[in-house]
Computed example of a mutant assay.
Amino acid sequence: MPTTQHISIDTDRCIGSGQCALTAPKTFTQDDEGFSALRPHAEDAPADPLVREAARACPVQAITVQDD
């Protein structure tokens, strides 16, 4: 069975820089106010190395990724 990743965004910490959406556009988008949001069904998706890169790229470390 493939590894899945649980992704969470600390919305209180997010500043809307958009680095996550630029790095992993299949997983992240920006909401109507410009803050980070997960695309539908992305919260528990198959592991994608770009998601970890997006978490590293976040200037305020608002993204957490855990492997199951």
Score class of each variant (00 low, 15 high):
Thr23Ile: 04
Phe35Gly: 04
Ala54His: 02
Cys20His: 04
Thr11Lys: 04
Ile15Gln: 12
Gln19Leu: 08
Ser17His: 08
Val65Thr: 11
Lys26Leu: 12
Arg13Leu: 15
Ser8Gly: 10
Glu43Asp: 05
Asp68Cys: 02
Ser36Tyr: 00
Asp48Met: 07
Asp68Glu: 09
Gly18Asp: 09
Ala47Met: 05
Asp44Ile: 06
Ala24Asn: 07
Ala42Leu: 05
Arg39Met: 00
Ala21Ser: 10
Ala21Trp: 01
Ala24Thr: 05
Cys58Ile: 02
Val60Leu: 12
Glu53Trp: 02
Asp12Tyr: 01
Thr4Val: 15
Ser8Thr: 12
Cys20Phe: 03
Arg13Ala: 15
Ala42Asp: 09
Cys58Ser: 04
Thr64Tyr: 10
Thr4Pro: 10
Cys58Lys: 00
Thr11Leu: 12
Lys26Pro: 05
Arg13Gly: 00
Ala45Asn: 11
Pro25Ser: 06
Leu50Tyr: 01
Arg52Ser: 13
Ala37Asp: 14
Glu33Gln: 15
Glu53Arg: 09
Cys14Tyr: 06
Ala45Ser: 14
Ile7Thr: 08
Glu53Pro: 09
Ile7Gln: 02
Glu53Gln: 11
His6Asn: 09
Asp31Thr: 07
Thr11Ser: 15
Pro46Ser: 01
Arg56Ile: 09
Cys14Gln: 10
Cys20Val: 05
Asp48His: 14
Ala45Thr: 14
Gly34Ala: 05
Asp67Cys: 06
Ala24Gly: 08
Gln66His: 06
Ala45Gln: 15
Asp10Ala: 15
Gly18Asn: 07
Thr11Phe: 12
Pro49Leu: 00
Ile7Phe: 09
Asp67Val: 08
Pro59Cys: 03
Gln19Asp: 13
Cys14Glu: 08
Ser8Phe: 12
Leu22Glu: 13
Leu38Cys: 07
Arg56Ala: 15
Ala21Met: 04
Ile9Met: 07
Leu22Ala: 14
Thr11Gly: 10
Arg56Thr: 15
Ala55Gln: 07
Ala42Phe: 09
Gly16Trp: 01
Asp32Leu: 02
Phe28Leu: 02
Pro49Ser: 01
Thr64Lys: 11
Ser36Met: 02
